[in-house]
Computed example of a mutant assay.
Amino acid sequence: MPVRADELPEAAVPSPPPGLVTVGRFDQRPGYSVNRPGGADSWLFTWTTGGAGLLTQGATWTRSGAGDLVVLGPGVPHRYAVAPGAPRWMFWWVHCQARPAWTDRLRPHLLGDRLHAVTPVPAGVRDRLEQAFGRMLADARWTGEGAPPDTESAEQAGSAESGGGPVAVAHGTAARELALCSLESIVLLTTATATASVTVGGEADRPGVDARIRRAEARIAADPGAPHTVATLAAGVSLSPSRFAHLFTQQLGRSPMRTLLDARLLHAARLLEATDLPVERIAVAAGFTSPFHFSRVFRQRYGAPPGAYRAGLRR
């Protein structure tokens, strides 16, 4: 059943276990919200088909309208709800572990704090996406015996009168892989056809992002531990530092140094998760010259100092 704000106003809502593929379609009215102060253990994919939603992850937020795919990575506090002023929010959602190749396709759409907004998807592609989500919901129900169920339409998956749609959990290996294949087609279609236009952190819709700014952003993401400065990043794309900083902030909704800090903290978190390197070495590898500063900003972002963050993951 969908979680409603009038039942659990700001309570923490647990996410599905990370090893499962869980898919559903909701049609929610104002007052609906989900709050996870600890984030989720899995990735969350949302695709809006009507109305609007407001999704917040860490310090980054975006408004999602019809045709927008918004993806929230794991491990960052998040909250999502019907957007203020919207009469409803109709959306498909999927909790799962993302395939490695998907993160490469989503990276150009990263806004910060593991929040990706792939928007807007052309109207001509949306029918095919609707079919892919319906197929995913049907495949998730397959037990492995007989033929998989027929693809479910949006009408079958839920209605406004019911206040939400059914949820399917793909338990079997075949059902899980079929569902993930449908989701992979969704990621491919949206990232291949979407244009760079997004609403983030209060910024208005943007007609596009300068290729030089995208190159600088990709350079930060590829090597966050490097000694980047506004001057070196600007020189790399043949812009003056002042012009570069202005364009970067205007088009991406955050400053170059804020983007660099976000990338370094994310890199540090991944090192803490995947390695046994001492915290001091991770700080250096992530580009922090002061262990004290690293510990302070890491705690501000993830709610615990680096050592405690790692210990919590191990537990």
Rank of each mutant, 00 (worst) to 15 (best):
Leu69Thr: 10
Glu130Gly: 12
Ala211Thr: 13
Pro120Val: 10
Ala40Phe: 03
Leu106Phe: 02
Phe292Tyr: 03
Asn35Phe: 13
Ala218Thr: 12
Gly172Pro: 01
Glu152Met: 15
Arg29Gly: 05
Thr190Tyr: 01
Gly172Asn: 02
Leu272Met: 11
Leu260His: 09
His95Phe: 15
Thr173Val: 08
Ala234Arg: 02
Gly51Trp: 05
Leu277Ile: 08
Asp68Thr: 14
Ala268Arg: 01
Arg281Glu: 10
Arg135Met: 11
Leu313Thr: 05
Val169Lys: 04
Pro278Gly: 07
Thr229Arg: 07
Asp68Glu: 13
Gln97Asp: 12
Ala138Glu: 12
Pro74Lys: 08
Ser42Glu: 09
Ala5Pro: 02
Glu7Phe: 02
Ala170Lys: 03
Arg79Cys: 13
Pro278Ala: 11
Leu129Gly: 07
Gly146Pro: 08
Pro14Asn: 12
Tyr80Arg: 10
Val3Arg: 04
Arg314Pro: 03
Val284Phe: 02
Ala101Ser: 13
Gly58Arg: 02
Thr259Cys: 15
Arg264Gln: 08
Gly19Ala: 09
Pro122Val: 03
Val237Cys: 10
Arg135Phe: 01
Gly144Trp: 01
Val230Leu: 04
Leu115Gln: 12
Ser162Tyr: 01
Pro30Thr: 09
Ala245Leu: 06
Gly112Ser: 12
Met136Lys: 00
Pro74Trp: 05
Val187Met: 04
Pro305Phe: 02
Glu184Trp: 00
Pro148Cys: 15
Arg219Ser: 12
Leu115Ile: 15
Ala168Gln: 04
Val71Gly: 09
Arg270Phe: 00
Trp92Arg: 11
Arg114Leu: 13
Trp142Arg: 04
Gly164Glu: 11
Ala11Tyr: 03
Leu44Glu: 11
Ala274Arg: 08
Gly51Pro: 13
Ala11His: 06
Ala40Leu: 09
Trp47Thr: 15
Arg258Cys: 08
Trp102Phe: 06
Pro224Ser: 06
Thr259Trp: 02
Asp150Met: 06
Leu55Ala: 12
Ala218Asp: 13
Trp102Ala: 13
Gln250Val: 10
Ala204Gly: 10
Ser295Glu: 14
Gly112Ala: 10
Arg296Ala: 10
Pro108Leu: 07
Gly67Ala: 06
Ala196Ile: 05
Ala140Ser: 13
Gln251Ser: 08
Ala268Pro: 10
Tyr32Glu: 07
Val94Lys: 00
Glu155Gln: 14
His109Val: 09
Gln251Ala: 07
Ala147Ser: 14
Gly31Phe: 07
Ile220Ser: 07
Pro207Ala: 11
His116Met: 04
Ser242Asn: 12
His109Asn: 02
Leu188Gln: 07
Arg270Thr: 08
Ser182Ile: 01
Pro148Lys: 08
Asp6Lys: 06
Gly303Asn: 05
Pro77Ala: 14
Ala98Cys: 06
Pro74Asn: 10
Arg126Asn: 03
Pro37Gln: 03
Pro37Tyr: 00
Trp89Lys: 08
Gly112Met: 09
Val209His: 00
Asp150Asn: 06
Glu155Tyr: 03
Pro122Ile: 05
Trp92Thr: 09
Arg99Glu: 12
Gly307His: 07
Val94Cys: 11
Gly146Asn: 05
Met257Tyr: 06
Ala138Leu: 11
Val198Glu: 06
Ala154Gly: 14
Asp27Ser: 14
Tyr309Leu: 14
Gly303Trp: 00
Arg301Leu: 03
Ala216Trp: 02
Ala86Tyr: 02
